[in-house]
Amino acid sequence: MNLTTALARFLIFPGLLFAVPAAWFFLWVERKAVALMQGRIGPPFMQPFYDFIKLLGKDTPPRSGVGGLLMKLWPLIAVSAAAGAVGLLPVLPSSGGFEGDLILLLALLELPSMCIIAAGFSSGSIFGEIGSAREAALSVSYNVVFLLAIVSIAASQHTFRLEALAKLPASPMLWLGVVAILVCLPAKLHINPFSLPNAEQEIYSGPMTEYAGPELAMWELSHGLEWVAATGLVATLAAPHLTLWWLAALVFVALSFAVVLLLSVIAAATARLAIDTTVRFYWQCTLIFAVLAISSALFMRFRS
């Protein structure tokens, strides 16, 4: 019984069967929101799906040796990590089985950006290397804030269990953490104003420059799954605790959609920042709030 529920969570909801169409839907929402903000009509509803199928049918340049093998491997690791992160989200009320914890979820969320860094370096393209270096600098900057925010939520609850964190009652502590996570999401998803690693018109496509065909399709899919996982994390933290499973699922989807819409509008309204401005933004402006959050969480813990 435990195995079946765990498998159902990974394969059906919120796992693959839900996450892959949701990934395409969120990618469409992102493009459509940008188009509407610019006064255009934008791509048709099925566009990310057509792009994915078309990329699957394209050739890839011949690659040999360990470098070629690694280049095939990175996108697959990124997709499976992002899918695993979505599968772990505590959307439905617990029914036993493998649950995982916050540390595993954070590791899986971080793995795709590690893969992007490695992919850029193993592609051997100069633009890929510049993109990877930027991604590494960006990752070091936003992750401090991101991790401190999540740790502060966890510390105020004395637990790393996802199930307990999803049940948190709304408190100023929780909202501070959610806002700090929201500030980090544009950098995590490489959208404006922090679209440095894959900066178009600047360094071609960054780490993805040398990728083609099915490998590129996997990168697109992993990007979409990252959207689902990252917005889903915010949605599960912000959602009120519900016992009805269909209501919980509905609230999860609605909240994720709202976060995607918010991020897309921010992306359309802003321009790309330079790398030094970005790093300064995270280390000087945002870090203060994260430190404030974690110190107040620890303070509350010692008082209680």
Binding site: Q38, K54, E210
Partner: peptide, 21 residues
């Protein structure tokens, strides 16, 4: 641009020739 909006046909201007059709 907004006046002609080729993205309605799924057109995307790519940075890398590897991605292009």
């Amino acid at each position: 641009t907004p006046r002609y909006d080729a993205e309605q046909l799924g057109v995307r201007l790519e940075g890398s020739p590897r991605h292009a059709d």
